[in-house]
C-alpha cells in the first residue's frame, strides 16, 4: 500500500492506494499524522481497492486516539467495496464521510477553527 501525505488549508490529507489489510494496516497506524492525537486528518480512500477488518480496525483505532474522533479523521471518496466493509460493522456511524476530498478538507478546517 502506498501512503501519500499532502496538506491543504492547514489539514493533512493522507491518501491511500492499494490494499488495506493486515499486512498494510500497521503502516497506516504508524503514519505520523494519523498517529498524532492532535492532528486532524482527511483520509482519502479513493484508490483503496480492498479493505478488510484489519484496515477498518486501524482507521477506527486511530480515530479513537484523536482528541475529537469524529473530526480527527474525516473520510473521503470511499468506493462501494470499502463502504460495504464499513456498513457490515456499522462503523460508518463513527465518521464523517465525504465523496470529495476538497469538501472533506473544508469541513475539517471549519471544525478545527471552531475548536480553537
Amino acid at each position: 500500500m502506498i501512503i501519500t501525505e499532502t496538506s491543504a488549508n492547514g489539514i493533512v490529507i493522507v491518501a491511500l492506494e492499494g490494499r488495506l489489510d493486515a499486512l498494510s494496516a500497521p503502516k497506516l497506524r504508524g503514519s505520523p499524522p494519523v498517529a498524532d492525537p492532535k492532528t486532524a486528518v482527511v483520509l482519502d480512500l479513493e484508490k483503496v481497492d480492498f479493505m478488510d477488518s484489519s484496515g477498518l480496525g486501524a482507521i477506527v483505532g486511530a480515530a479513537r486516539e484523536k482528541g475529537d474522533p469524529a473530526c480527527g479523521i474525516v473520510l473521503s471518496c470511499m468506493n462501494n467495496k470499502v463502504r460495504r466493509t464499513f456498513e457490515t460493522t456499522n462503523a460508518q456511524r463513527l465518521f464523517h464521510i465525504f465523496d470529495d476530498t476538497s469538501a472533506a478538507v473544508d469541513f475539517a478546517a471549519t471544525r478545527q477553527i471552531a475548536r480553537t
Binding site: 480496525g57 486501524a58 479513537r64 460493522t89 463513527l94
Partner: peptide, 16 residues
Amino acid sequence: APDIESYPENGYGLWI
C-alpha cells in the same frame, strides 16, 4: 457484534 461505539480495533473478523 462488535460494540462499535467503543471504537474497537480488533474483533470484527468473524462477525463480518
